[in-house]
């Protein structure tokens, strides 16, 4: 009994949940921004992969985790630039381009990895944790939540920063108008294409950071397909969060617990086939969609390229 539900086990479970949640959080926040502005960004999985790969390369060769984050954001933005060009500026189908980008990046990063690292499988050293005084002494949740890498705290802080941007800034208004009634934004004198481009590029940066966290902080290495659907989970989170960053955080933590449980249950040696356990997070997605999917209110112009004067 104590073996399974003891303090240490629970703490490890929670710690794992947070580590698993951060990439989802970053992907969800990124996707949310695109969707707010009216762009359905299916390519986010590809952006995460680009970020994970470049983030790992950057961190591995420079020896600096933070430089790795920088290159990962650059990788995500590079993929997002393609998306913005094709879907926002030229107005091609967002779903088709998004799928193409994801599949393309899966192949490309796997190939690059094969040539560069398939013999050596290099790893990054374990990351330093930042211990928050006092709070980290709380039993169970203290070690789980307050002995994390600095980037975890920054990611959580980002949730509130995004909330501020959406509710209190001109950019927030512009983004929402671009998604709900782009024509109104256009006649108000704001370039819809530019607004949406900003949103998509930000998504790319956030997705890239999420990928880098997954590879560098979570796993310490890059393997092909490392994101394993994290970007798609981000899309689900963004859809369920109804435009509120804080709901993305809650959702990400929930999925994080599920993902962490799969590891924990394997470790604990519970007699359930691994495949069933690994299915758990996705089962959670389906349950959440059944429960809350109908409440998801999406921007009116989501997925529709803007063309001036078209009615």
């Amino acid at each position: 009994m104590t073996g399974l539900f003891g303090e240490i086990f629970l703490s490890a479970l929670l710690f794992g949940a947070v580590t698993a949640a951060i990439p989802l959080l970053l992907a969800g926040l990124g996707e949310q921004m695109s969707e707010k502005a009216g762009v359905l960004n299916i390519g986010i999985e590809g952006m995460m992969l680009a970020g994970a790969y470049l983030g790992f390369v950057g961190a591995f060769y420079s020896g600096s985790l933070w430089l790795g984050f920088l290159t990962s954001a650059g990788g995500g933005i590079a993929v997002a630039l393609v998306m913005a060009l094709l879907c926002v500026r030229i107005g091609l189908n967002q779903i088709v381009i998004g799928i193409a980008l994801t599949l393309g990046l899966e192949g490309l990063t796997a190939l690059l990895h094969h040539f560069q690292f398939s013999r050596s499988y290099p790893r990054l050293p374990a990351v330093d944790v930042t211990v928050i005084p006092l709070l980290s002494d709380i039993p169970v949740i203290g070690p789980a939540l307050f002995r994390q890498h600095l980037s975890v705290y920054l990611a959580v802080a980002l949730v509130f920063a995004m909330g501020y941007v959406y509710r209190r800034t001109q950019l927030g208004l512009n983004l929402q108008a671009a998604g709900d009634k782009p024509a109104a934004l256009d006649v108000a004198g704001i370039d819809v294409v530019r607004t949406r481009t900003i949103a998509v590029l930000t998504t790319g940066a956030l997705a890239g950071l999420g990928g880098a966290f997954l590879a560098n902080v979570g796993a310490g290495l890059f393997i092909p397909f490392i994101t394993n659907g994290a970007g798609f989970l981000g899309i689900v989170l963004a859809m369920l969060a109804r435009g509120r960053p804080v709901w993305v955080l809650f959702g990400a933590l929930l999925f994080g617990v599920c993902l962490s449980l799969t590891t924990a249950m394997q470790v604990a040696g519970i007699n359930i086939p691994t495949d069933v356990i690994q299915m758990l997070p996705f089962l959670a997605v389906m349950i959440m969609l059944v429960l809350f999917g109908r409440r998801a209110s999406l921007p009116a112009a989501l997925g529709i390229p803007y063309e001036r004067g078209a009615r």
Partner: peptide
Amino acid sequence: MLVPTLTVAENLLLGGPWW
């Protein structure tokens, strides 16, 4: 040409410099 999900004030503010 108003954004239905925004308030009147927010609609009137639409169009200012984004920063």
